[in-house]
Each structure stands twice: as C-alpha cells, then as structure tokens.
C-alpha cells in the first residue's frame, strides 16, 4: 500500500491506496505515529478515495490514531470513502465515532470552522 501526503494549511492529509489491511496497517500506523509526535495539535485527514478494502486491523489503526489525536486536542477525520469501505464503517457503526466527509475539501473546511 502506498502512502502519499500533502498539507492543507495546518492540516496534513494522508492518502492511502489499495488494500488497507493487517499487512499494510503497520506502515500506516508508523506514519500516523510520526505525525502525532511532530504536529501540535495533530489535525489529520485520511483520504480513502483509492482504498478498496479495509479489515479490522486497519479499522483498529484508524480508531487508535483518532483517539490519540483527540487526546492531543487534534482530530483524525475521514474523507472520500468508496461505497464498500463506507459500508464497513456503517456496519460497524464507526461512522458514529469518526467525522466522515464526502470530500477532502469539506473535511478541511470543517477543521477551519
């Protein structure tokens, strides 16, 4: 899985690609750990536009990072979920735990608000 990123003001956007599962989760976790250590507060958007699958390890990685970001007065928000991925968030009701946006720009805008 490839990880790209770009900045939008004080916010860092993580772009993932492919399958986000037990094999790729450690890499994503490492990336998130670094962001949470170095950015104060850690405001992160995970753009899942190119992610085709997430498993429970991936969900746990995102949940953990979201909890840490909130502890550090930041947040981790999600955007651009494809239908199958959105369905997993809905089924597990993680859509009630995360702030999820249709578009990355909306997520950026919500941070500014």
């Amino acid at each position: 899985m490839e990880i790209k990123s770009h900045e939008a003001g004080d916010i860092i956007v993580m772009e993932l690609e492919g399958r986000f599962d037990a094999y790729s989760a450690p890499k994503a976790n490492e990336w998130l750990e670094e962001v949470m250590t170095n950015r104060k507060p850690p405001n992160v958007i995970v753009n899942l536009e190119n992610v085709v699958f997430v498993d429970s390890t991936a969900l746990a990685t995102l949940v953990q990072a979201m909890k840490r970001c909130r502890q550090l007065d930041g947040d981790l928000r999600l955007s651009n979920l494809k239908q199958p991925v959105r369905m997993i968030f809905e089924l597990t009701r993680l859509d009630r735990a995360f702030e999820i946006f249709n578009l990355e720009e909306e997520a950026v805008g919500a941070f500014a608000a």
Partner: peptide, 28 residues
C-alpha cells in the same frame, strides 16, 4: 456494538441484517 453480520430470518418472511447502532467496545 458494531457487530456484523447478524441475520434474523422470520419463518414467514425474508432474512434481514440486524445492523449495529453502537460502535464497537473500546472505540468511544
């Protein structure tokens, strides 16, 4: 709490998924 799949199949009807309304334990 975030669990799936749970299927309820009434004897006289079509099976349906009983979707979660809470997040998994340990999330919030």
């Amino acid at each position: 709490a975030g669990h799936s799949p749970v299927v309820f199949c009434p004897f006289d009807g079509e099976p349906i998924l009983l979707e979660a309304d809470g997040t998994a334990l340990g999330v919030l």
